[in-house]
């Protein structure tokens, strides 16, 4: 009886720990939504900033982040999916494959600021792209490549082996088999994983700090060699570098909310796609 009571107290404590974590997450979201919503308006997302961000909107930052994401996707998605196809469909168990896997693990652990240094050294300076959308996108692409490879490989491996065997036995070549009977069924998993990676790229600040982001640039980019503003960097600047940081607090909250909505929207989209495709293919 005594033992039971003490056990129940411990259970209660563990539950308390879990739910305080949940509570904190909930409070952060609540705080940002509550303070961000009042300042959020159509003008805020569709206008240029004025007075170094103290007034007006954040259109250039939204466009900047979007163009960075498009660039990142164009580079990272094909590269990541093809790598995953190699690892799941072609790779033999040998030294070379082990090296690729080690490299992917290593890339996944490299801190984002180190990607920034790397992007600065290679893309901005050595290849002379300057601080530009191109340099920033390439840097972000390198950063999310491991995420895309790992999740895509998992999705490819989830396709039952029987489909591959059946297709090969019907005289399809290996590539025909992959194209018609492996890729289509793993697409949902690949897309889901990729969106999560892209969400990470959308919120990252450190890599673009050194490779693309402009402090204050109230116009839209013309080419991939232009600098742009970006949402996370804009929030950082407003919150820490702005001379009247306190006065622009509502704008900071609104910017944080837009960024949060973008990232959470991407995650939500990924979840919806996953559910939709799960209904379509079941095995």
């Amino acid at each position: 009886m005594r033992r039971q009571r003490s056990e129940q107290i411990i259970y209660l404590l563990i539950r308390l720990v879990m739910y305080s974590i949940v509570l904190v997450i909930g409070y952060i979201l609540f705080d940002i939504i509550r303070n961000g919503l009042p300042a959020l308006s159509w003008e805020f997302v569709s206008e240029y900033p004025r007075k170094s961000g103290a007034e007006g909107g954040i259109l250039p930052a939204i466009v900047g982040t979007m163009s960075l994401l498009v660039g990142t996707i164009i580079v990272a998605l094909p590269l990541g999916i093809c790598s995953a196809i190699y690892l799941s469909e072609y790779a033999e168990q040998n030294r070379f494959t082990a090296m690729i896997r080690l490299a992917i693990i290593t890339l996944a652990g490299v801190p984002s600021i180190v990607y920034g240094l790397f992007g600065l050294g290679l893309f901005v300076l050595f290849l002379n792209f300057g601080t530009s959308i191109l340099a920033g996108s390439l840097t972000l692409a390198c950063m999310i490549l491991p995420t895309i490879i790992v999740s895509s490989e998992e999705a490819l491996r989830a396709v039952p082996r029987g489909y591959r065997d059946a297709s090969l036995a019907l005289g399809a070549t290996k590539w025909e088999t992959i194209r018609t009977n492996v890729l289509p069924y793993s697409l949902s998993g690949i897309i889901t994983g990729s969106i999560l990676g892209i969400g990470r790229a959308a919120g990252e600040t450190a890599p673009i700090l050194l490779t693309v982001a402009a402090f204050y640039l109230p116009r839209l980019p013309n080419s991939i060699f232009d600098q742009v503003m970006a949402l996370p960097y804009h929030l950082y600047i407003l919150a820490t570098q702005h001379p009247e940081a306190d006065k622009v607090l509502p704008l900071q909250y609104a910017t944080a909310l837009v960024l949060l909505l973008l990232v959470l929207g991407l995650s939500l989209g990924a979840i919806i796609i996953r559910i939709h495709f799960r209904k379509k293919y079941r095995w």
Binding site: G162, D165, S167, A169, A172, R282
Partner: peptide
Amino acid sequence: GMVFQKSNPFPKSIFDNVAYGPRIH
């Protein structure tokens, strides 16, 4: 041709399953 121990129709329509081989060829 080969038929496997565990039936392994593709998660496609019945028609597309049978037409798969001819299409490939």
